[in-house]
């Protein structure tokens, strides 16, 4: 199967690989997937408390090229958004942007899950109720 140019580009030059200090109050961390499934994604956001904007986002991913590209793209999209805006990122937006084939849709689902998990972590840390809405996949 051939990869799209965009997947190759994110894979070769991933944006925002790294680790934020998860003990900080304004950092939310999402860890999703499982080693047995062949994919684990960790996505982190750092929120600027004054403006409420996500000022930094980092990821680390164990998975196929599409999973790496999905998380790299997700971190790019997260920066500059408010936490609520970030919640509107849909996995199908990622599929479209990266031209993922049907067998790779779950890699994008993982990225959406990771975003939600990071936001949830941030909300809980800051005394907000956990999001219950979970997409059924």
């Amino acid at each position: 199967m051939a990869y799209s140019e965009k997947v190759i580009d994110h894979y070769s030059n991933p944006k925002n690989v790294g680790t934020l200090d998860k003990s900080k109050q304004n950092v939310g961390t999402g860890l999703v997937g499982a080693p047995e499934c062949g994919d684990v994604m960790r996505l982190q956001i750092e929120v600027d408390e004054a403006s409420g904007l996500i000022k930094d986002a980092k990821f680390k991913t164990f998975g196929c090229g599409s999973a790496i590209a999905s998380s790299s793209l997700a971190t790019e999209w997260l920066k500059g958004k408010t936490v609520d805006q970030a919640l509107t990122i849909d996995n199908m937006d990622i599929v479209e942007e990266l031209h993922l084939p049907p067998v790779k849709i779950h890699c994008s689902v993982l990225a959406e899950d990771a975003i939600k998990a990071a936001i949830n972590d941030y909300r809980v840390k800051n005394g907000l109720p956990e999001l219950v809405e979970q997409k059924a996949h």
């Binding site: 990869y3 190759i8 894979y11 062949g38 994919d39 164990f62 998975g63 196929c64 090229g65 999973a67 790496i68």
Partner: peptide, 11 residues
Amino acid sequence: KYVEGEGLMMG
């Protein structure tokens, strides 16, 4: 260990 095969092959 700790890298996924398909991701690895893509390199």
